[in-house]
Amino acid sequence: MSDAALRLIIVVLGVISIFLVGSLLWFGLNPQRDPASFPTSTAIEPDFSALDLGTPLPGFEGFGDVNRVRSEAAGPYVVNFFASWCQPCRLEHPYLLEFGAANPGTLIGLAYRDDPLNAAAYLTSDGNPYAAVVADLKSLNALNFGLTGVPETYVFSADGDLLFRSPGPLVGALKTQFINAWEAAQ
């Protein structure tokens, strides 16, 4: 092979390598990207099979039939995981109260890793936004929904398809996305 041809191949390969490494760094070192964040897409398939295994909250036994909301809600419905010990949950609580009042019979609450007594006390003092609420004592619903922490909110179509998943409290951008998803689902 002639020296000029070899030289050309080396230069071309070198330029391609620099481009490949550069593009890796471009995506990998993007400050907007959080490598620790878990995908929050709707590409998961939550499983409702354990929904009736929740423990009713003392004083809120009338709200204990979670599956009733799913069957009676003719349209879309929302599942919200919360806990009395969870501070970010208090951030979204005023909005949940507002949402529950505006959309009766659509909001399901599941208390995550929470004593039913504490969850009941929290809803008594801060108000109950839920049409149905139970404690998810064995975390079976949490795992079935792919929960990573509280609060987390799931919007389902009437057919039970996951339309939107909020990986944090419904404030700011997540609240806007939630409202858009809810309105699009109607």
Partner: peptide
């Protein structure tokens, strides 16, 4: 396969540089 690809390209470039040196 990205890392393997990058390694092969590096090895290829090294090989070609050495080849060029030898022909010179």
């Amino acid at each position: 396969f990205g890392p393997v690809l990058i390694f092969l390209m590096g090895a290829g470039i090294t090989g070609l540089v050495l080849l060029r040196g030898r022909s010179r």
